[in-house]
Design a binder for these strands. Sequence first.
DNA 1: AGCACGCCGACT
DNA 2: GTCGGCGTGCTC
Length: 688
Amino acid sequence: MSESLQPSLLAGFDLSAPLPGIPHMAAVLPIARVIIDSPVPHLDRPFDYLVPVELDATAQPGVRVKVRFGGQELAGFIAERLEHSEPGIKLQPLRAVVSPEVVLRAEVLAVARGVAERYAGGVWDVLRAAVPARMARVETQKSQDAKRTEEAQKAEADEAVVSERSTAGSLLGEYDGGADFAEALRAGSGPRAVLSAVPNRPGDWPALLLEAAELSLSAGRGALIVVPDARDLNRLCTYVDGAIGPNSYARLSAEDGATPRYKNFLRITRGETQLVIGTRNAAFAPVHNLGLAIIWDDADHSHAEPRAPYHHAREVLLLRCGIENAGLLVAAPGRSAEAQRLIRSGWAQELGANRALLRANAPRVIAASDEFESERDPVLHAARLPAAAWREAKAALEHGPVLVQVARTGFMPALRCERCRTSARCSACSGPLALDDARGAPSCGWCGLVAAGWSCGECGSMRLRAASIGADRTAEELGRAFPNLTVLSATGAKPIFTVPAKPALVVATPGAEPVAEQGYAAVLLLDGDRMLAREGLRTGEEVLNRWMGAAALARGRDKSGERPGGGTVVVAGDPTEPMRALVRFDAAAYADAELTERREVGLPPAVRTALIQGPATTVEKFMAALELPDSVRRNGPVLQGEGEHRWLLFFSYAQGPSVTAHLRAMRARFSAAKEPVVSIRIDADGIL
DNA sequence: AGCACGCCGACT
DNA sequence: GTCGGCGTGCTC
């Protein structure tokens, strides 16, 4: 304190300070380490501030604050309170505590930092996904609301337990190793497992997941279930509402709107509930003492965040389970290669379905490759229906609804010149032309411009034909093949969630399939060849997982008339490996074979990847500056449009942390040197 | 994005 | 000798 005179002397000269003398700071832990809201990579680190005495009580770790930073007011979170800061830095005081609610718990911050590190991104970008926007109203009105419903909720839950629980046995116990897994959960330890769900069990997958979650709750630990989208969320929530009551858990989804999202988030962070069900951002939900995290259908692309740093909910949960010593259950109708890798590496155990269980519950699967047979019947041909599929559908329609899975949405989602077959493009932006219904004019899929007087740029012809058939067109053609029958069309844009147990044809795109009340009597998978024709490393795996998702909606095969007209799945197309896997109903074996193959050729997910893209000169400088071991494979530069370069790095899981940390540090250096932004995407889907 | 600090030229 | 140009780099 030998310099104590100097600061006060300086403060005396500081005319901008409204009050004379030094403001009063908190007596203990006067330093707040703050994570600031800045998109600038080299500012992606905490900064220290002084805590004024009047903010001492509320400025706790995890609260939202306002701070002054380089001449501007920024939002931030307090990461921790400290006794001392780095010497030689003149600290600013905190400007304000926005709300005393602890919205960023220490474990969640640790997870966010881990995610930022793994994806070479900014912590704040992760936090934006992890912590919902504040809705000030919700904070005050909440508590009384919770009290009021508590009584009703208890009564409701008790009642539900009586009606549902008595009929439910152990669904987990049906899987190999499932009983041990359940026992570990009940004991409060954090077991890790992967399973492919057997369809047609009581309550279906929602019952299975809830059973696992409740085992964790029974051990006094929290549970978290992450599903891909609103459709699955609604299905799961409906089941859970019926089983244990609507107030026994918190639902967390960005699609529910800012107010309900924040309201439910507060219930979780205040510890009012330990069971959370939600979509991808719920992976960060501040569940107290998390004991089990569950991810449903991790192969679904909705689990990947579309904004930087493009993290995947499965990877978030993997990190989180390590940090919080919680269990993990990866469950799906199929199997992702990533999930298979967890089994292979011994990190997770496989809860296998034995053949007897599968035989009793899986639908019958038929491969139909008889193009020429349906070629003769113009109606079947127009509906792209192999004769075998038509026969099965016709028989199944006696007993219930039939699902038809097609690749694309719309009516004619792509058009081409009738004469020379050049694909039809928009004259303004070169986007693909599409037709929405039988009568309308073609319009651009990108800019929406209506192409009234189209003529082919190659040959001058003015006539168009369909390059692909969408769900709506298929529905129309099927209506002709099956007259007097209800034909429904379900797509992402026009969703249908459930259909009654009555004869009907339900045409749907992958992921948009409605659930049939007592299962579909038949499921027709029509566009396999088209879906498999798409370029891409993971096409086969994706198609199989989409098929498995739809096949899981079919009834089980005939069991002594208990369910008349047991479920049949017909898959149309040329015989392929994914098709054989579907017939065996064994996505795990397929994923395992895929993983073996990827390991041999050194491609993801047997290895990890980093995609580096940006202005050519900057990217080349960036690549030259990287100091990575020779074992990191480099692929590039690939020209990417106007003056853009793209590189791809391949590295092992063991190298992962050091590689992503290095990329992150290098990006910060370039940012500080005012170089243009280099985009980095780690383990991006669909790039190969 | 602002703000301080710094090195050089013009003017008192 | 002092004031002020804006260029570079840091921001608790």
